[in-house]
């Protein structure tokens, strides 16, 4: 199970990194969002994987580590705020300069 989990996280990370390296703002924003999912899974897994051990007292004998869960819970909400911010930034940029390319127009980088 551990192998499966880490491979999944790795694949998600790789796909997000690929998106972040695109030349248009929207895929970059989606890439950041997906990367935050991968990061959340990663952080969550620092408490190791437990099945049927929700940290609700009295329901189980063994509990999953609640600390990474609390950390990730706020990370999800903050991640949403960040996604929202970058989405709106992208829209604003398009409104201001009329394009959604992330490279400066007069730069030498021609490919997108």
């Amino acid at each position: 199970m551990e192998t499966l989990f880490s491979v999944t996280v790795g694949v998600l990370t790789a796909c997000s990194v690929f998106l972040i390296l695109r030349g248009r703002s929207f895929p970059v924003v989606v890439g950041i969002t997906m990367l935050s999912y991968a990061v959340n899974l990663f952080l969550f897994s620092t408490g190791r994987l437990t099945i049927d051990g929700a940290p609700i007292l009295g329901t189980n004998t063994e509990y999953a580590d609640p600390l990474p869960q609390a950390l990730v819970l706020t990370a999800i909400v903050i991640g949403f705020a960040m996604t929202a911010y970058s989405v709106i930034l992208a829209v604003r940029t398009r409104g201001e300069i009329g394009t959604d390319e992330v490279n400066e127009q007069d730069s030498g980088e021609s490919s997108r």
């Binding site: 551990e2 192998t3 989990f5 880490s6 491979v7 996280v9 790795g10 694949v11 998600l12 990370t13 790789a14 796909c15 990194v17 991968a38 990663f42 897994s45 620092t46 190791r48 994987l49």
Partner: peptide, 13 residues
């Protein structure tokens, strides 16, 4: 990058 992350994650898990 994905490979690095997966490796680290496996090591931790």
């Amino acid at each position: 990058i994905g490979g690095i992350v997966a490796t680290l994650n496996y090591g931790i898990l």
